[in-house]
Design a protein around this nucleic acid. Structure first.
Lengths: 252, 252
DNA sequence: TTAGCAACTTGATGTAGATCAAGAAGGGGC
DNA sequence: GCCCCTTCTTGATCTACATCAAGTTGCTAA
């Protein structure tokens, strides 16, 4: 069983970082080794974040994008009255922080567990992407994917039942793990039931009951935060025609 | 009473179009008259769209961004089983189409009424924004605002009651009208009850009942698609602390 | 090992808003 | 004007999920 805590660094991803065990993480294919080298020197590793520690908060000045090296994070929007809505989870190898491009961050980003992230400073991004049009284009794509992902979530939250939401979430997570060389069937959830519920617009109790039903119907084994999907097709079937609009969030 | 059908073209906005009555629509402040002139020649007006006519569909190749000259449009994501979720409404002077930046459009855009739009071809955008860094930065901001707006909607849909959703929607619409020189208190809804309900994740009947309650409590007069807000504060109060996270969608 | 707490589970009950079903009111076209 | 068709309203009923209330499990720490 693979744990998401440490990212192996041999997946098919795209950007190098001088201090990272990550092989590549965000640079588009077709970039010269020379440009690649210049990019490396611009990526900084941040001090490790402990559980519940924020990387940035709503309103913070936007200075950089971030890539998850190990661990995982969530982003959330808040209201005056202290309510939160989790807007995304980020796994090793994924890039996030686009919410800040309008000068200030509109979300907070918080570590779900002990995590390492790399920083891509805005200055470097701008300088380099003005020299490498394909990088510029790639960043546009990543932002567009963020938009698409958020809009798929809108559909999920307003038109889908609780079980469809959870099934969609699990399938999406599974695909993201698989894409990075982890097992698609067996993985560890780094977020609490409460976080899953919040993300999916449900109550934590409901999520718990849905996991119970997945166990009873032999679709998946759920033991604490460890999940093994036995019947992927049944899970997908539960989603009922919206497979194409999964929040696949191919970020990076 | 102001109708949104025709945009007066004297608002504080930013981009010129050679055939448009719009004065300016998207170019950032501080751009030289020279660059402005070059930009003008790149904007094309499209043939008018009639009601329910699509401007682009999910999966269409991304070739341009669009600005609303007159009328209004909606964007929507769809599922295999034919269900739709409206992801946004666009009023005169607003820019949209960012969902396509990942090569293909992930939404469809459909006219709500007879509408005119201007087209900003991708090629022109790329060429010009590589020469004018501030334009590049402005486009990033617009995309970020789209992300922020979508994420505010996530919060609205999953954590807010039906009346809070409608109040938020009306306040947001009102602000957008005001920003473009229209009355903030009195405006015409170009979308059906069904569209409003779909956008807010509700049933059309519920929207109808909520409008009735707004009338009964003297907060607003609602007569068909014409709305007059009498007590703006009461409307805002109904939103309960989430005023800061309104989908203000300052697009353009 | 055991205490203390947070995370999770499970059951009982309540309710906001969906759905179903009929009418009423607009609003183009002729 | 009048017809037809869509949109909107209003009421009655139903239900998925939230909320409330106890447990239970499982870390973490000494």
């Amino acid at each position: 069983m693979v744990d998401v805590a440490e990212f192996p660094g041999n997946g098919p991803i795209r950007l190098t970082c001088k201090d990272c065990s990550l092989a590549e993480l965000c640079l588009p294919r077709g970039v010269s080794p020379d440009d690649m080298g210049r990019f490396e020197t611009m990526v900084d590793q941040r001090p490790p974040l402990s559980r519940d520690e924020p990387l940035y908060r709503t309103g913070d000045r936007f200075t950089a994008l971030y890539a998850v090296k190990s661990g995982s994070l969530k982003t959330l929007v808040s209201t005056q009255d202290g309510e939160n809505q989790i807007t995304g989870f980020y796994l090793p190898g994924e890039l996030f922080g686009f919410d800040g491009f309008d000068d200030n961050h509109s979300c907070s980003a918080v570590a779900l567990e002990r995590s390492n992230v790399c920083e891509l400073p805005l200055d470097s991004i701008e300088e380099l992407s003005s020299n490498i049009p394909s990088l510029r284009r790639e960043l546009d794509r990543l932002m567009a994917r963020q938009i698409n992902s958020d809009q798929s979530m809108l559909l999920l939250l307003s038109r889908r039942s609780a079980d469809e939401r959870l099934a969609t979430f699990l399938v999406s997570l599974s695909m993201r793990f698989q894409q990075r060389g982890f097992s698609a069937n067996e993985f560890r959830l780094s977020m609490s039931r409460h976080d899953i519920a919040n993300y999916l617009g449900l109550a934590a109790e409901t999520v718990s009951r849905l996991f119970k039903r997945l166990k009873e119907s032999k679709i998946a084994s759920v033991n604490g935060r460890t999940i093994i999907v036995h019947d992927f097709d049944a899970l997908r079937d539960g989603i009922d025609g919206c497979a194409g609009s999964l929040p696949e969030r191919n970020l990076a």
